[in-house]
Design a protein around this nucleic acid. Structure first.
Lengths: 277, 277
DNA sequence: TTGACATCTGACCGATTAGTCATTAGTATA
DNA sequence: TATACTAATGACTAATCGGTCAGATGTCAA
């Protein structure tokens, strides 16, 4: 295991036990069995450690969720498969979820905030897509409410998976929640979350965050990457965000250039979503 | 407004903005317009401030919830009234909820952890009680699942109330969630949360926490209270926890002795629950 | 064995923290 | 006005923080 990896793992442990602010670099190095100096050979600052951790752990989690969400589900067992995958991933990533989704400091970090918003949008879209597949005609009025209920189910039951040590039958859990979702979808008559409410809530997201943060994300990536072709690709993609110039084929090529570098694979992932390619 | 009150209010503001660890005593005193020394006239340590804040803000919130939960609801509109009251309280106490329920540092504080567990048990019991009233016969198998769904609804929709600035029609929200609860209760056939699962999860709570923490809670109260009768009452109640000696009448009297003092009213509240008087 | 190089160490730095205390300001009484 | 007392101040301390760097240690080819 690389030194960076060791530090991140032990830091994750400590953050999970005490929180970020309460954990000193000293404590991290002690648990790793290395000196303070060695820490600063791997990471320039404590902040860089956090950003790397977000990139490493949360990116993994979100990409996993992304896969699970898109999975080629059988029509009738759509919801069961979805819930089962989601909870298995919550279990697999339980420590990082516990650390990153609970602490204020992390939520004020741009990188994390952006990733969480990506994750939220992703999940919401997947749920809406599934609901539209299952109930193509009669769910226009209530689909957002059903989606919120699904989020509620996941939140509450995920706590069991993440925080308790009791071994749980996730297959059974998934079936149970799929039934509940179906029941809600079929019987709800008085929805609360309307189309317009969703738009009001989503408004500040899409535009403001995406534009600003994407550019900053790219700039950071440019600063950290060595490969000159990847750097140039990032530069061109940055310009693309401000003024549309290239067609989809060129964009796709540029993204391919940067996707292979671990330092910019996340940027590629996000930009692919942004440009819809 | 007393100086203590001023400090607690401004500290709550700052904690809500930056988090606990990131907020220094200096910052608090600056926002209050007082000197650092003046702070330490009101609170011995920064930690004592936090404990006082938990006592003050969270106690208020939980006692409010307690009232709302017990409220004399009309039979048919039981759930609607319940949801409406809950969300109104979440809105009223939104800042303190945001501060205390989100940060790791607070959750590792005994006082807070105990209060949260009291709040959880309280809520669960109220929900189960309501469900048993509404469906006296046919909900034995699924009542815990329905309760978990209610928790999920509250968690998800409470986020809207607490974190968004959009004005919401809480009456409408309550009706919508009451309908969803009714639907789930009437149609669920495959529950996940069983009686035995609940018992396993509740096990470490009741005994371990209650015993230990209650004694510590009482000891703290004894140390902070002046009135000699109240002190003696607390001492007797402490002994009662370890070995049962007195009957309900005596216990009730002892609790009455300490209930009137603001420093020990919370202890009285908790002990009354513990002794079932 | 030597020398060149990368890796690692821990004493050290300035900044900031929670907490203290001699001093001062304000106020009520005589 | 003089006295006594409380309330408030802010310079101060010791400890800890994130971060640095001169020098020790380990490694490997010549």
């Amino acid at each position: 295991m690389s030194k960076k990896q060791l530090i991140m793992d032990k830091a994750l442990e400590l953050f999970s036990e005490q929180g970020y602010e309460a954990t000193s670099v000293q404590q991290i190095t002690e648990r790793c069995g290395i000196s303070k100096g060695a820490f600063y050979l791997s990471f320039k600052t404590k902040d860089e450690l956090v950003v790397s951790m977000i990139d490493y752990y949360l990116q993994q989690f979100i990409m996993d969720i992304d896969q699970a969400v898109k999975g080629p589900y059988q029509h009738e067992s759509l919801l069961v498969e979805f819930y089962k995958n989601i909870f298995e991933l919550f279990k697999k990533h339980s420590i990082s979820v516990r650390v990153f989704f609970n602490e204020k400091v992390f939520l004020s970090k741009q990188e994390l905030f952006y990733k969480i918003s990506v994750y939220e949008v992703e999940m919401s879209q997947a749920m809406l897509y599934m609901l539209e597949q299952l109930y193509p005609n009669n769910l226009q009025e209530t689909k957002y409410d059903v989606m919120y209920c699904m989020k509620g189910f996941i939140k509450t039951y995920a706590e069991l998976v993440i925080f308790s040590n009791i071994p749980l039958d996730l297959e059974h859990l998934a079936k149970s929640l799929a039934e509940k979702t179906r029941i809600i979808a079929e019987h709800t008559t008085t929805p609360f979350i309307t189309e317009s409410l969703v738009q009001i809530m989503a408004a500040p997201y899409e535009q403001e965050i995406a534009q600003n943060t994407l550019v900053q994300l790219i700039e950071q990536s440019i600063a950290s990457i060595e490969d000159s072709i990847a750097r140039e690709s990032l530069q061109l993609l940055k310009e693309q965000i401000e003024t549309t110039t290239y067609n989809r084929a060129i964009l796709k090529g540029l993204l391919a250039n940067i996707r292979q570098h671990p330092e910019s694979s996340w940027v590629a992932y996000v930009l692919a979503k942004y440009f819809h390619v």
